[in-house]
Protein backbone atom coordinates (compact mmCIF):
# COMPACT_ATOMS: atom_id res chain seq x y z
CA UNK A 1 0.00 0.00 0.00
CA UNK A 2 1.88 3.02 -1.25
CA UNK A 3 0.37 6.37 -0.33
CA UNK A 4 1.47 9.96 -0.66
CA UNK A 5 1.91 10.99 2.96
CA UNK A 6 1.81 14.74 2.17
CA UNK A 7 -1.53 14.37 0.42
CA UNK A 8 -2.75 12.22 3.27
CA UNK A 9 -1.77 14.90 5.79
CA UNK A 10 -3.63 17.53 3.79
CA UNK A 11 -6.66 15.22 3.66
CA UNK A 12 -6.50 14.63 7.41
CA UNK A 13 -6.26 18.36 8.09
CA UNK A 14 -9.28 19.07 5.93
CA UNK A 15 -11.35 16.24 7.42
CA UNK A 16 -11.43 17.38 11.02
CA UNK A 17 -14.72 17.28 12.89
CA UNK A 18 -15.83 18.03 16.42
CA UNK A 19 -18.33 16.61 18.86
CA UNK A 20 -20.49 19.70 18.48
CA UNK A 21 -21.08 18.65 14.86
CA UNK A 22 -23.32 15.87 16.18
CA UNK A 23 -26.76 16.51 17.65
CA UNK A 24 -26.54 14.49 20.83
CA UNK A 25 -30.16 15.26 21.76
CA UNK A 26 -31.62 13.95 18.49
CA UNK A 27 -34.20 11.16 18.87
CA UNK A 28 -33.09 7.53 18.73
CA UNK A 29 -31.58 6.88 22.15
CA UNK A 30 -34.77 5.08 23.09
CA UNK A 31 -34.00 2.41 20.48
CA UNK A 32 -31.52 0.83 22.88
CA UNK A 33 -33.42 -2.09 24.37
CA UNK A 34 -33.26 -2.93 28.08
CA UNK A 35 -31.69 -6.31 27.18
CA UNK A 36 -29.01 -4.62 25.11
CA UNK A 37 -28.24 -1.92 27.64
CA UNK A 38 -25.96 -3.69 30.18
CA UNK A 39 -23.97 -5.55 27.52
CA UNK A 40 -23.67 -2.44 25.41
CA UNK A 41 -22.45 -0.47 28.40
CA UNK A 42 -19.60 -2.91 28.99
CA UNK A 43 -18.85 -3.08 25.25
CA UNK A 44 -18.72 0.69 24.83
CA UNK A 45 -16.52 1.05 27.85
CA UNK A 46 -13.99 -1.44 26.44
CA UNK A 47 -14.20 0.15 23.01
CA UNK A 48 -13.62 3.58 24.42
CA UNK A 49 -10.59 2.42 26.37
CA UNK A 50 -9.11 0.63 23.39
CA UNK A 51 -9.40 3.87 21.38
CA UNK A 52 -7.76 5.75 24.20
CA UNK A 53 -4.93 3.25 24.48
CA UNK A 54 -4.46 3.48 20.69
CA UNK A 55 -4.31 7.26 21.05
CA UNK A 56 -1.42 6.98 23.48
CA UNK A 57 0.29 4.58 21.10
CA UNK A 58 0.13 7.20 18.34
CA UNK A 59 1.54 9.80 20.74
CA UNK A 60 4.56 7.57 21.27
CA UNK A 61 4.89 6.98 17.52
CA UNK A 62 4.92 10.72 16.85
CA UNK A 63 8.14 10.91 18.88
CA UNK A 64 9.75 8.26 16.69
CA UNK A 65 8.49 9.29 13.26
CA UNK A 66 11.30 9.30 10.68
CA UNK A 67 10.05 12.45 8.96
CA UNK A 68 8.02 15.57 9.73
CA UNK A 69 4.98 14.55 7.65
CA UNK A 70 4.61 11.23 9.41
CA UNK A 71 5.14 12.93 12.73
CA UNK A 72 2.33 15.38 11.98
CA UNK A 73 0.09 12.51 10.87
CA UNK A 74 0.70 10.67 14.12
CA UNK A 75 0.03 13.85 16.11
CA UNK A 76 -3.35 14.09 14.35
CA UNK A 77 -4.05 10.38 14.78
CA UNK A 78 -3.34 10.71 18.49
CA UNK A 79 -5.94 13.46 18.69
CA UNK A 80 -8.39 11.60 16.46
CA UNK A 81 -8.28 8.43 18.54
CA UNK A 82 -8.94 10.62 21.55
CA UNK A 83 -11.85 12.15 19.64
CA UNK A 84 -13.20 8.65 19.01
CA UNK A 85 -12.93 7.80 22.70
CA UNK A 86 -14.66 11.09 23.56
CA UNK A 87 -17.39 10.40 21.01
CA UNK A 88 -17.97 6.92 22.42
CA UNK A 89 -18.15 8.39 25.89
CA UNK A 90 -20.68 10.94 24.63
CA UNK A 91 -22.75 8.05 23.21
CA UNK A 92 -22.57 6.32 26.59
CA UNK A 93 -23.80 9.47 28.22
CA UNK A 94 -26.61 9.75 25.69
CA UNK A 95 -27.63 6.21 26.57
CA UNK A 96 -27.46 6.91 30.31
CA UNK A 97 -24.45 4.69 30.86
CA UNK A 98 -22.21 7.16 32.69
CA UNK A 99 -22.20 7.49 36.41
CA UNK A 100 -22.38 11.30 36.64
CA UNK A 101 -19.12 12.87 35.55
CA UNK A 102 -17.15 9.68 36.08
CA UNK A 103 -15.09 8.07 33.34
CA UNK A 104 -16.01 4.35 33.05
CA UNK A 105 -13.65 2.16 35.05
CA UNK A 106 -11.11 0.30 32.85
CA UNK A 107 -10.61 -3.42 33.50
CA UNK A 108 -7.37 -4.52 35.14
CA UNK A 109 -5.75 -5.54 31.86
CA UNK A 110 -6.45 -2.13 30.41
CA UNK A 111 -5.04 -0.55 33.56
CA UNK A 112 -1.85 -2.59 33.14
CA UNK A 113 -1.56 -1.64 29.47
CA UNK A 114 -2.17 2.03 30.32
CA UNK A 115 0.52 1.82 32.95
CA UNK A 116 2.94 0.23 30.51
CA UNK A 117 2.17 2.79 27.82
CA UNK A 118 2.71 5.59 30.30
CA UNK A 119 6.04 4.27 31.46
CA UNK A 120 7.61 2.65 28.43
CA UNK A 121 5.83 3.33 25.16
CA UNK A 122 7.99 6.36 24.36
CA UNK A 123 11.05 4.10 24.53
CA UNK A 124 9.71 1.60 22.01
CA UNK A 125 11.03 1.61 18.46
CA UNK A 126 8.55 2.71 15.79
CA UNK A 127 8.48 -0.72 14.14
CA UNK A 128 6.95 -2.33 17.25
CA UNK A 129 4.08 0.13 17.77
CA UNK A 130 3.80 0.66 14.02
CA UNK A 131 3.02 -3.03 13.60
CA UNK A 132 0.76 -3.55 16.61
CA UNK A 133 -1.42 -0.48 16.07
CA UNK A 134 -2.72 -1.60 12.62
CA UNK A 135 -3.64 -4.93 14.20
CA UNK A 136 -5.69 -3.21 16.92
CA UNK A 137 -7.18 -0.80 14.38
CA UNK A 138 -8.24 -3.54 12.01
CA UNK A 139 -9.77 -5.54 14.82
CA UNK A 140 -11.69 -2.46 15.95
CA UNK A 141 -12.66 -1.38 12.48
CA UNK A 142 -13.44 -4.77 11.10
CA UNK A 143 -15.12 -6.44 14.01
CA UNK A 144 -16.12 -4.28 16.93
CA UNK A 145 -17.53 -1.28 15.06
CA UNK A 146 -19.32 -3.47 12.54
CA UNK A 147 -20.85 -5.50 15.37
CA UNK A 148 -21.97 -2.32 17.07
CA UNK A 149 -23.62 -0.92 13.97
CA UNK A 150 -25.29 -4.26 13.25
CA UNK A 151 -26.87 -4.40 16.66
CA UNK A 152 -27.58 -0.74 17.56
CA UNK A 153 -30.31 1.15 15.72
CA UNK A 154 -29.76 4.60 17.19
CA UNK A 155 -29.14 6.87 14.15
CA UNK A 156 -26.84 9.14 16.18
CA UNK A 157 -24.60 6.15 16.81
CA UNK A 158 -24.49 5.45 13.06
CA UNK A 159 -23.79 9.09 12.34
CA UNK A 160 -20.91 9.15 14.84
CA UNK A 161 -19.40 5.91 13.61
CA UNK A 162 -19.56 6.98 9.98
CA UNK A 163 -17.17 9.77 10.96
CA UNK A 164 -15.05 7.49 13.15
CA UNK A 165 -14.74 4.90 10.37
CA UNK A 166 -13.64 7.56 7.91
CA UNK A 167 -10.83 8.52 10.27
CA UNK A 168 -9.92 4.88 10.92
CA UNK A 169 -9.62 4.10 7.22
CA UNK A 170 -6.96 6.82 6.96
CA UNK A 171 -5.19 5.49 10.05
CA UNK A 172 -5.12 2.02 8.49
CA UNK A 173 -3.88 3.36 5.16
CA UNK A 174 -0.94 5.06 6.85
CA UNK A 175 -0.47 2.10 9.21
CA UNK A 176 0.03 -0.39 6.39
CA UNK A 177 2.16 2.07 4.43
CA UNK A 178 4.52 2.35 7.39
CA UNK A 179 4.46 -1.42 7.90
CA UNK A 180 5.76 -1.84 4.35
CA UNK A 181 8.14 1.09 4.66
CA UNK A 182 9.83 -0.74 7.50
CA UNK A 183 10.21 -3.88 5.46
CA UNK A 184 12.90 -2.27 3.31
CA UNK A 185 16.51 -2.99 4.15
CA UNK A 186 18.68 -5.99 4.69
CA UNK A 187 16.66 -8.89 6.02
CA UNK A 188 19.32 -10.21 8.39
CA UNK A 189 19.77 -6.74 9.88
CA UNK A 190 16.03 -6.32 10.41
CA UNK A 191 15.79 -9.79 11.92
CA UNK A 192 18.71 -9.20 14.26
CA UNK A 193 17.25 -5.86 15.31
CA UNK A 194 13.88 -7.48 15.95
CA UNK A 195 15.50 -10.16 18.12
CA UNK A 196 17.41 -7.53 20.07
CA UNK A 197 14.24 -5.47 20.54
CA UNK A 198 12.29 -8.50 21.74
CA UNK A 199 14.91 -9.04 24.42
CA UNK A 200 14.25 -5.56 25.78
CA UNK A 201 12.72 -6.11 29.25
CA UNK A 202 10.42 -3.10 28.74
CA UNK A 203 8.96 -4.76 25.64
CA UNK A 204 8.65 -8.06 27.50
CA UNK A 205 6.57 -6.32 30.14
CA UNK A 206 4.48 -4.83 27.35
CA UNK A 207 3.90 -8.26 25.82
CA UNK A 208 2.88 -9.56 29.25
CA UNK A 209 0.29 -6.79 29.48
CA UNK A 210 -0.87 -7.06 25.85
CA UNK A 211 -1.48 -10.82 25.58
CA UNK A 212 -4.02 -11.16 28.41
CA UNK A 213 -5.72 -7.94 27.28
CA UNK A 214 -6.41 -9.46 23.86
CA UNK A 215 -7.84 -12.62 25.39
CA UNK A 216 -9.91 -10.68 27.91
CA UNK A 217 -11.32 -8.49 25.14
CA UNK A 218 -12.14 -11.60 23.16
CA UNK A 219 -14.00 -13.06 26.14
CA UNK A 220 -15.83 -9.80 26.80
CA UNK A 221 -17.07 -9.32 23.30
CA UNK A 222 -18.07 -12.91 22.90
CA UNK A 223 -20.18 -12.49 26.05
CA UNK A 224 -21.84 -9.55 24.35
CA UNK A 225 -22.88 -11.67 21.41
CA UNK A 226 -20.14 -10.95 18.83
CA UNK A 227 -19.22 -14.07 16.93
CA UNK A 228 -15.65 -15.04 17.69
CA UNK A 229 -15.15 -15.76 13.99
CA UNK A 230 -15.77 -12.18 12.95
CA UNK A 231 -13.00 -11.03 15.28
CA UNK A 232 -10.74 -13.70 13.85
CA UNK A 233 -11.53 -12.82 10.25
CA UNK A 234 -10.67 -9.20 11.04
CA UNK A 235 -7.34 -10.33 12.46
CA UNK A 236 -6.71 -12.43 9.37
CA UNK A 237 -7.36 -9.34 7.31
CA UNK A 238 -4.26 -7.84 8.95
CA UNK A 239 -2.19 -10.72 7.64
CA UNK A 240 -3.78 -10.46 4.20
CA UNK A 241 -3.30 -6.70 3.76
CA UNK A 242 0.04 -6.41 5.54
CA UNK A 243 1.41 -9.39 3.59
CA UNK A 244 0.31 -8.18 0.16
CA UNK A 245 3.72 -6.84 -0.77
CA UNK A 246 7.16 -8.35 -0.42
CA UNK A 247 8.26 -5.36 1.70
CA UNK A 248 5.37 -5.91 4.11
CA UNK A 249 6.20 -9.59 4.42
CA UNK A 250 9.87 -8.81 4.99
CA UNK A 251 9.04 -6.72 8.05
CA UNK A 252 9.89 -9.06 10.96
CA UNK A 253 7.35 -7.35 13.20
CA UNK A 254 4.60 -8.01 10.69
CA UNK A 255 5.64 -11.68 10.76
CA UNK A 256 5.66 -11.77 14.57
CA UNK A 257 2.27 -10.08 14.91
CA UNK A 258 0.50 -11.95 12.14
CA UNK A 259 1.80 -15.29 13.45
CA UNK A 260 0.65 -14.28 16.88
CA UNK A 261 -2.72 -13.47 15.29
CA UNK A 262 -2.85 -17.03 13.98
CA UNK A 263 -2.34 -18.33 17.51
CA UNK A 264 -5.06 -16.07 18.85
CA UNK A 265 -7.62 -17.25 16.31
CA UNK A 266 -6.85 -20.90 16.94
CA UNK A 267 -8.78 -21.56 20.13
CA UNK A 268 -7.45 -25.11 20.35
CA UNK A 269 -3.84 -24.00 20.46
CA UNK A 270 -1.88 -24.50 23.63
CA UNK A 271 -1.12 -20.76 23.54
CA UNK A 272 -4.46 -19.98 25.17
CA UNK A 273 -3.78 -22.01 28.30
CA UNK A 274 -1.03 -19.83 29.74
CA UNK A 275 -2.59 -16.64 28.39
CA UNK A 276 -6.03 -17.43 29.81
CA UNK A 277 -4.27 -18.28 33.06
CA UNK A 278 -2.64 -14.87 32.89
CA UNK A 279 -6.08 -13.28 32.46
CA UNK A 280 -7.28 -15.02 35.63
CA UNK A 281 -4.05 -14.15 37.40
CA UNK A 282 -4.36 -10.47 36.59
CA UNK A 283 -7.78 -10.49 38.27
CA UNK A 284 -5.83 -10.94 41.49
CA UNK A 285 -3.22 -8.30 40.68
CA UNK A 286 -2.85 -6.22 43.84
CA UNK A 287 -4.47 -2.87 43.12
CA UNK A 288 -2.11 -1.13 45.50
CA UNK A 289 0.75 -1.97 43.16
CA UNK A 290 -0.89 0.02 40.39
CA UNK A 291 0.60 3.44 39.82
CA UNK A 292 -1.75 6.43 39.95
CA UNK A 293 -3.78 6.91 36.77
CA UNK A 294 -1.70 9.15 34.48
CA UNK A 295 -3.08 12.60 33.78
CA UNK A 296 -3.42 11.93 30.02
CA UNK A 297 -6.28 9.60 30.93
CA UNK A 298 -8.02 12.47 32.69
CA UNK A 299 -8.26 14.35 29.39
CA UNK A 300 -11.10 12.01 28.31
CA UNK A 301 -14.43 13.77 28.23
CA UNK A 302 -17.96 13.30 26.92
CA UNK A 303 -18.39 17.10 26.76
CA UNK A 304 -18.66 18.87 23.44
CA UNK A 305 -17.43 22.23 24.70
CA UNK A 306 -15.04 23.34 27.39
Amino acid sequence: MNIDLDKMLAKVRSSQWALVDIDWEAPGAELITPEQWPKLKAFMSDLMWIEHVGARGFAAMAKKAPNETLKQLYIYFHAEEQRHANTEMALMRRWGMLDGEEIPEPNINLRLVIQWLDQYSDDMPLEVLGSVIPMLEIALDGALCKFLLDTVNDPVCHQAFARINDDESRHLGVGFHVLEMQGHGKLYQMALKAVATTLNPKLMLGILAYLPLLNRMRDNIVTMGLKEESLYSAMQKYERIGGRTAAGRRNPWFQIISRHGRLVVNRKHFYHRPVDALVRLTDHYPRRLLRPVPTWVKQLTYKTTA
Binding site: Q16, W17, A18, L19, V20, Y76, A79, E80, Q82, R83, N86, T87, Q299, T301, K303, T304, T305, A306
Partner: peptide, 11 residues
Protein backbone atom coordinates in the same frame (compact mmCIF):
# COMPACT_ATOMS: atom_id res chain seq x y z
CA UNK B 1 -13.72 29.69 20.16
CA UNK B 2 -11.20 27.11 19.08
CA UNK B 3 -11.94 23.56 17.96
CA UNK B 4 -9.16 21.11 18.53
CA UNK B 5 -8.70 17.75 16.85
CA UNK B 6 -9.68 15.70 19.88
CA UNK B 7 -13.21 16.96 19.17
CA UNK B 8 -13.69 19.69 21.77
CA UNK B 9 -14.72 23.27 21.19
CA UNK B 10 -12.89 25.53 23.61
CA UNK B 11 -15.13 28.53 24.17
Amino acid sequence: GIRTSEGLEHR
